[in-house]
Write a protein that binds this DNA or RNA. Structure first.
Lengths: 209, 209, 209, 209
DNA sequence: TATGAATGAGACTTCATTCAT
DNA sequence: AATGAATGAAGTCTCATTCAT
């Protein structure tokens, strides 16, 4: 009858090799369930079964279903951030850097399209919300830095918009089942450059520089 | 949880005024619950209570919770389509027509922001999926027609992308709690025109006009 | 994933005859399980099964297991209070009134000895605690009033002690399996009168009056 | 929950100093958990953690949770018996000896009030029941001997009643949070002497002897 | 037709206990 | 002997749906 507040952090960091494998297996099982059978099928018992672990073990590593989900989101976010960060860090012209970043994002989405798509509409919850915000901020931060260095006006908002419009286009394409990454990349480039170049009077000079 | 093959269509077309009012009350109750307390709070019993109808009656009008939800989505979709269609139908230049359409979409989102936002991440289900696809198609069709009439290349894809990027930007803004419709409208204009103008070689002439 | 705070009050007052019967059946089932198989066997599923009701129904009337338990305690308390109150209300000499009260308490304990005994050590919880305190207070209040009217010194504490020592003796006797109510009544009388008569100097006059 | 026939005896008598310390640590940890956080928090894993021992080790010394609990009760009982026995063994008048005993009991209760109180309502189980009976018998035996030597009629029953009424008063006082040991001692004395002196005709002579 | 009591599958989570290392 | 990861039965509670009145 005693209820402790549900934490979203893992209960214990897997210290042994075996544990790490167990945790990874559970997170991956969750991912597979979500992408194959949807949110409704994501039950802790199902995750335990699919990962070949007992339900008790699941709860030894995650204090709640929510925490497991948060870990999955964290994992995907880390991958995306890493790839995009790397891509944009390559020195070069602004358009090139952006293109690299967009391509990295696209690649991420196309690696596991169903999963990426599903994670966009996770059941809202404080911890998930937090993970999502963190992703958005980190990504926006990276891009904003790049834009600022190239003299784009209001780089924070511009970064947020660029990311948002990319997400919009990519998600819609994924939902339609598009698989032509090249076409998508081209259109994304158009959208991003169009947005950045079609600037108000104040930033015209900077953008054309 | 006895599940019979769940139909998503209302069980009966409201033929009497009273029925129509009842159905409307239930759909509106669902909308209010979703926007005020989130998806998790959307239970059929709750909907029945809030709409002043018994749970038994609810199931006389809707064969399942899913059908109720589909009806809500249908209702919102109809409103959006109507507004956007009207806005874009106003004769005028391309940029103006588009701006009208974008403004209509924005207005829709700002009428009930929480609801609009929540409906973007409805629990996926065949019928909901279908409703959503229908919306997308209808909207894209309207816009594609407009673009085609103005000689834009590949109008279907362009329409889809324009709608998608607008959704992306608007949703992200809503999520951040932005309330400045004017700023949003300006940025959306930038994004849309940027996308349409920054064209490949084939449409360069149009873009430079 | 949404947890509301567990109330101890019944969820809805049974308004129809059928409901009232259902509620009574559940409370009685709980009583029987506790007295026959002990606290460990008191599970909501078990209660539902024994009362011939579905688990869903149980939770329609009680928001939690705790609330069901509280209702049982409340029921027993009401009976005890009613009997003891009636017994002590009979006009007469102090010793006689007390004897009546003690006999009423004894009778209560002997009606369902195992239940009465078990309820003494209910798993502590806020609501149960509250019910128990209420019983103690009500009983002590009744007795304190009686004692005060007969000039006993410090009637509140005396009442509390008298009740406590009676409970102690009765419980121990019940635990040993004593069944001779007459003997028990005699000893209780001795204990109570002994306590009240063997007073400190201050109240000697009053007690002997 | 694989349940083998649970023994209540410790699995092995601690033959080495280290083992004894380990066992003591676990028992004390259990005591602390019970008094600080209540019965609901008493889990074997929690006990192991608090006592700095692995759960595996705990089960090497105790075959079950119940056995651990029994050992705790045994420990407390031994202390109480030792103190009360010593106190009553002091030669002297009957009233004095009894007063000593009562004081010893009170002192025990006040040493760790929360623990003493909690142990009164331990989850019933065969082995716990047995420990409790043993305590009662031993205590009653000691007191009965004393009473018999002083010619009190029906000393066994009198002893049982005296102990029971003391427990009743003490527990109720503890539950109310009383801390005035002196007042409590005075009232206990009244109750005990009252009970012993207010005898039926048959034992009046004996009591006054 | 409307009502709302009743249903019950199944979700999440805990915790006593085992056993490979 | 000690460790602690793993187990899984079982408990509490929810909610979509049915059906007697």
């Amino acid at each position: 009858m005693a209820k402790t507040a549900a934490r979203a952090e893992p209960r214990k960091r897997p210290s042994q090799a075996r544990s790490a494998a167990t945790v990874a297996a559970m997170v991956e099982a969750a991912a597979r369930i979500i992408e194959v059978r949807g949110w409704a099928a994501l039950t802790t018992n199902h995750v335990a079964e699919l990962s070949g672990v007992s339900i008790g073990s699941l709860y030894q590593y995650f204090p709640s279903k929510e925490a497991l989900l948060a870990e999955l989101v964290r994992r995907e976010r880390a991958m995306l951030l890493h790839d995009v960060g790397l891509a944009m860090a390559l020195e070069g012209e602004l358009p090139l850097a952006i293109e690299q970043g967009v391509m990295a994002g696209l690649a991420h989405q196309f690696r596991r399209p169903a999963l990426a798509l599903a994670l966009e509409s996770a059941p809202s919850s404080p911890s998930l919300q937090h993970e999502d915000d963190a992703l958005r901020h980190a990504l926006a931060g990276q891009l904003a830095g790049l834009l600022a260095r190239h003299g784009v006006a209001d780089p924070d908002m511009a970064a947020a918009d660029v990311i948002a419009l990319c997400r919009g286009i990519i998600d819609a394409a994924a939902l339609r089942g598009e698989t032509d990454m090249a076409s998508l990349a081209r259109r994304l480039g158009r959208a991003v450059h169009g947005y950045l170049d079609t600037a108000g009077p104040a930033s015209e000079a900077a953008a054309s520089a």
